[in-house]
Amino acid sequence: MTIKIKHQDLCLPISPMFAMHLAELISNHQAASAITVNFRDPNYTAERGGFHPVEVRLEKETNAEHGEQWRICYITDFSYVGIGYMAELTKELDFDFDSGIFQNALGIQPIEQASEIHPIWEQNFLAYSLGIKAYQVEVTPE
């Protein structure tokens, strides 16, 4: 069975490449009703930097028109704030499709306000994940 990720007609453009990447990662977990995918650079620290951790949440839905497909609930990019032992991993960019909000350093805004930054973020993420394979990936089914 082919995994379908709902990526069209969303409030932010999700590229077919991003959807295919997620579909490949979750293909072994078709029995799950929800999946969280974590992308981690094992060398990322507050002191040295590195590639930001990313978390993507997907939930399965079924309808008469499209059959079974997965929808993206949120995409969150984390970064360290602070230095040394005071550094804390926090949300840097949060694209919350379920709530219709976008959160960044400027605060919480309607998700449509992320229409310019999301494609840039996605392009960079795919280059890091698929191009240079910067991440260790953990898939957690529910």
Score class of each variant (00 low, 15 high):
Met1Val: 13
Thr2Ser: 11
Gln8Ala: 05
Leu12Glu: 09
Pro13Glu: 11
Ser15Pro: 03
Ser15Glu: 04
Met17Asn: 10
Met17Asp: 14
Leu25Val: 02
Gln30Ser: 12
Gln30His: 03
Ser33Val: 05
Val37Met: 09
Val37Cys: 10
Arg40Ser: 08
Asp41Cys: 07
Pro42Tyr: 06
Asn43Lys: 13
Arg48Pro: 00
Gly50Trp: 10
Phe51Val: 13
Phe51Gly: 00
Glu55Asn: 07
Arg57Leu: 10
Arg57Asp: 06
Asn63Pro: 05
Glu65Asp: 11
Glu65Pro: 01
Gly67Pro: 03
Trp70Met: 01
Phe78Tyr: 15
Tyr80Thr: 02
Gly84Glu: 07
Gly84Thr: 05
Met86Thr: 09
Glu88Val: 12
Glu92Ile: 00
Asp96Val: 12
Asp98Trp: 01
Phe102Trp: 07
Gln103Val: 15
Gln103Tyr: 01
Gln103Pro: 00
Ala105Val: 07
Leu106Asp: 15
Leu106Glu: 14
Leu106Ile: 01
Ile108Cys: 09
Gln109Thr: 10
Ile111His: 08
Glu112Tyr: 08
Gln113Phe: 09
Gln113Ile: 02
Ala114Arg: 08
Ala114Met: 05
Ala114Gln: 09
Ala114Cys: 04
Ser115Glu: 14
Ile117Pro: 04
Pro119Phe: 02
Glu122Met: 10
Gln123Asp: 15
Tyr128Thr: 02
Ser129Lys: 03
Leu130Trp: 01
Lys133Met: 09
Tyr135Cys: 02
Val137Ser: 05
Pro141Asp: 03
